[in-house]
Design a binder for these strands. Structure first.
Lengths: 131, 131
DNA sequence: TTAAGGCTTCCAGCTACAGGAAGGTCAAGC
DNA sequence: GCTTGACCTTCCTGTAGCTGGAAGCCTTAA
């Protein structure tokens, strides 16, 4: 299977697949003409990577997950810890975004949004207090 | 005022301040010895940038906000639109993160997290359905 | 005079790819 | 046999927003 077909089957762009090879996440064999040839095993790895990336795991985390995936003697606790860590990371980002949203929403509510220059948003950014 | 003092006063690293100059967000004058010299106006801009960056605006958005900040004839509607757009962007990120969290949480709950290899998280990443 | 600290420029690296150029390969149609 | 177009190859550059580090000048105090 050539890279185009592997791309279709894994839902990953060819650019991404070549990049994953460059950083040694996969190593397809080469045909005589130099084309990359993907086995079913390679395809499984690509799909695994597509899914774990889409769940927010970094490349290095994916590398670790992949090694656990292929380790028959893995402990599920190791996998679960990665997932829980990622959930913690997501929680921190959520809290930060909620905080940003609250601040921006308050400012936007205070702003008339008309053609006059007076603007509480600019005042806040400039460090001017609103009283 | 030299860059170190400007850094303290604006809460921005010196590296960042030099970078902002490189991308033409500020243009401090130079002393005879070649040192950058920051005026009060420069300092206001730096603080404005620090605050707007911390609220999640991109560099290009900050550039726009800065021009509105310094435009006496601005319409507050222009500023408000930027803020509302940013809130929309934050909302989209929140939804995406919530979705990721829900998926990961469900998988983590299903995972025993012991020393055995059976793992619903890995199964999901591998595309195996859980039934 | 020397040492410490601050300043300068320049270059490399980070994440996870995407875009594009220049060129080889393959299958179909004429 | 030749062309055309789709596919493949490698290599280089760029993205955002800095950060780290090297090599070297400037300033101030002991």
């Amino acid at each position: 299977m050539n890279i185009g077909e592997a791309s279709q089957a894994s839902q990953l762009p060819t650019k991404t697949i070549r990049y994953y090879e460059e950083i040694k996440l996969i190593k397809p064999i080469r045909a005589e003409n130099g084309y990359r040839t993907y086995s079913e095993t390679d395809l499984h790895r690509l799909r695994f990577l597509q899914r774990s990336r889409s769940l927010g795991f970094s490349i290095e985390e994916c590398r670790l997950l992949l090694s656990l995936y292929e380790d028959e003697d893995r402990a599920s606790a190791d996998v679960k810890r990665l997932a829980l860590d990622k959930i913690g990371e997501i929680d921190r980002k959520l809290a930060e975004l909620e905080s940003l949203k609250a601040t921006l929403s308050a400012l936007a509510t205070d702003c008339h949004g008309d053609d006059r220059p007076a603007c509480p948003i600019i005042d806040d950014l400039a460090g001017r207090t609103s009283d």
